[in-house]
Amino acid sequence: MYTQFFGNYLLSKGYVTNEQLFSAMQKQSNEHMRLGTLAIHAGYMTASEVDQTIIQQTHEDKKFGELAIDMGYLTNDQVLELLRSQSPDFLLLGQVLVDEGILTNSDLENIIADYRSQNELIDLDMTQDSHDNIMKLLDNFFIMSETPLSHYGHMYLELLFNNFIRFVGEDFTPLTSEECDAFPVECCIRQRVIGEYEIASYINMDEETAIAFASRYVGDTFTEYDEYVRASMEDFLNLHNGLFIVNVSNDSSLELKISAPEAIDDPIVEFEHRTYHFPMLYSFGIVHFLYEVVKTCE
């Protein structure tokens, strides 16, 4: 499910360019996971064994699994297990990059090992979108060592990622987050969360991206930036913040409120409080999410 984090990792390490990632993300949905990739991921085969098996396939008309068994790389049970297993989405992205010739199987093997160790995910089941997994990934990607995220900050961002996945689509990569004092905006909506914990949330994107965002969010086709597109952005923000305060009220006795979403007309927003910028790279454009911490109760 968390392909986006793997995409960010590949970008930050310089394995792929923005354009290559974009292209791979678009192709990913039409691809099927191959046994060789799954076997590397499971640690049953090395990249070189997979490559050997693929070479052998050019000589013998057999399926990859049969050949890998013949060559002693896999057992029958392992093949059955791999065929039954649910593969993590990030692996498919890796496989597309191998197909595109951007990575080799050997690169992919090393990258998976490094990615797992960096994210302390060695023994975790990547297909489970468990609370702990997300928290670890968030901690690693939004390194804010000077001001670590508060409990509610974590809750907010975890929900934000889930809501982007649920309501817009999981094919996004969070680009490097940063603190900022001001931000130039184009189509921007703000909504405040008010109470003992206060934030101002902003969602901003260019018109083309907004049209594509709204089309996905509503499940309709918009062709121009109009009041429905703007209302879709407001609705997403309102839905996300509404669910956040529901979660907070379930988690503690804190009762927060939200203001009505409002469009920002100024070309630049200047922030009075510490503000984090989370850019999300979707195949249709970049969605900028800004999170201004006005008052914290922790």
Binding site: N238, N241, G242, I245, V246, S249, E255, I258
Partner: peptide, 8 residues
């Protein structure tokens, strides 16, 4: 019909 479905 609201996104703010808190208990209160």
């Amino acid at each position: 019909a609201s996104s703010v479905g808190t208990q209160s």
